[in-house]
Amino acid sequence: MSNALMASLLPEANANMPDFDPGDTVRVHQRITEGRNERIQIFQGVVIAKHGGKGAGATYTVRRVASGGIGVERTFPIYSKSVEKVEVLRKARVRRARLYYLRERQGKSARLREKIMVRGD
């Protein structure tokens, strides 16, 4: 009973929420409200971690290297209503779930091998 009750409260999954995994490069379109204006802000980077499983508080962290080589990481709730959509640009083959090692790397050593999609995958 209790678990069913809790599950029934889970927010509806965002229709524009594709399946992605750590290592994938994504574009997160977030709605930003400034006073009366609304605009879409895009944050593009590599998903370096997913956190919280399927729970109501689940999040994912996107890392991008901004101009000047400064790393910027943003964590978005999976069920966030302010995220308009997420585009998956590139899938990569990685061997761990949390890619925190990317923080210490830059340039060549920060590359990720692209996952070649076999048909039916």
Binding site: S2, L5, M6, L9, L10, P11, G55, A56, G57, P77, Y79, S80, K81
Partner: peptide
Amino acid sequence: KVGMTQLF
């Protein structure tokens, strides 16, 4: 009490 969760 059933438990805690979060909403938006």
